[in-house]
Computed example of a mutant assay.
Amino acid sequence: MEVYPIFPFDIMNKFEVLTIELRKGCNHSSPVHSSGVEEFIIVNKGILTFEIGNQVIHLEEGNSIKFLADKPHTYKNLHEEKVCFQNIIFYKN
């Protein structure tokens, strides 16, 4: 997994923007965030398999999702093509 900070965490605005690339077979389990933290995912390339709770969601290029990140969540690339997506994390507290 490669992570490229576009806008690193800013204490005043309480958000960060990352570009993330997952190569074939990559599986990243994200730590649980504090209550109220929201994540926004926008897939730029490839097919991202996203798991949160008991849900498995396949996001293709151009798809997006918003979720509360206070439970375990996992990002996977189950395909040959590299996955590239934007991850915006908003810290409410």
Score class of each variant (00 low, 15 high):
residue 31 P to T: 10
residue 13 N to R: 15
residue 84 C to K: 13
residue 22 L to R: 10
residue 19 T to L: 14
residue 84 C to L: 12
residue 87 N to W: 08
residue 71 K to N: 04
residue 9 F to W: 03
residue 92 K to M: 02
residue 53 G to V: 11
residue 55 Q to R: 14
residue 42 I to Q: 06
residue 91 Y to N: 00
residue 66 K to H: 11
residue 65 I to D: 00
residue 6 I to N: 10
residue 31 P to Y: 10
residue 31 P to N: 11
residue 49 T to Q: 01
residue 51 E to L: 09
residue 91 Y to T: 02
residue 35 S to E: 07
residue 10 D to F: 06
residue 79 H to Q: 06
residue 56 V to F: 05
residue 21 E to H: 06
residue 73 H to F: 10
residue 34 S to M: 01
residue 25 G to E: 03
residue 63 N to Y: 12
residue 6 I to M: 13
residue 14 K to S: 14
residue 12 M to F: 10
residue 7 F to E: 12
residue 11 I to V: 12
residue 73 H to G: 04
residue 81 E to S: 12
residue 16 E to C: 08
residue 81 E to W: 02
residue 36 G to W: 02
residue 85 F to W: 09
residue 82 K to M: 09
residue 64 S to G: 15
residue 76 K to M: 14
residue 77 N to Q: 11
residue 26 C to E: 07
residue 77 N to C: 12
residue 77 N to G: 11
residue 88 I to W: 09
residue 68 L to E: 03
residue 80 E to Q: 09
residue 83 V to T: 06
residue 86 Q to M: 11
residue 32 V to C: 06
residue 25 G to N: 11
residue 59 L to I: 12
residue 35 S to D: 07
residue 89 I to D: 03
residue 27 N to D: 15
residue 31 P to K: 12
residue 4 Y to A: 09
residue 87 N to I: 09
residue 90 F to E: 00
residue 44 N to Y: 11
residue 48 L to T: 05
residue 2 E to F: 13
residue 75 Y to P: 00
residue 46 G to N: 00
residue 79 H to M: 02
residue 70 D to T: 00
residue 39 E to R: 12
residue 9 F to D: 00
residue 74 T to I: 15
residue 74 T to Q: 12
residue 2 E to R: 15
residue 45 K to M: 07
residue 47 I to P: 02
residue 53 G to P: 07
residue 57 I to Q: 07
residue 6 I to L: 15
residue 26 C to K: 05
residue 40 F to S: 13
residue 25 G to F: 01
residue 84 C to P: 00
residue 75 Y to K: 06
residue 83 V to W: 01
residue 57 I to A: 07
residue 30 S to M: 08
residue 68 L to C: 01
residue 62 G to F: 01
residue 61 E to P: 01
residue 90 F to D: 00
residue 13 N to M: 05
residue 18 L to C: 03
residue 52 I to S: 05
residue 71 K to L: 04
residue 50 F to A: 08
residue 67 F to V: 05
residue 4 Y to V: 15
residue 72 P to C: 04
residue 48 L to V: 10
residue 26 C to D: 06
residue 72 P to Y: 10
residue 91 Y to Q: 01
residue 39 E to M: 09
residue 24 K to W: 00
residue 25 G to S: 03
residue 40 F to P: 05
residue 32 V to T: 10
residue 50 F to R: 03
residue 75 Y to R: 03
residue 59 L to A: 10
residue 23 R to M: 06
residue 77 N to M: 09
residue 86 Q to P: 02
residue 50 F to L: 13
residue 33 H to C: 02
residue 46 G to T: 04
residue 61 E to D: 06
residue 28 H to P: 00
residue 58 H to Q: 14
residue 26 C to R: 02
residue 32 V to K: 09
residue 26 C to P: 00
residue 66 K to A: 10
residue 19 T to M: 14
residue 22 L to K: 09
residue 24 K to F: 02
residue 72 P to E: 14
residue 3 V to A: 08
residue 82 K to A: 04
residue 72 P to S: 08
residue 52 I to V: 08
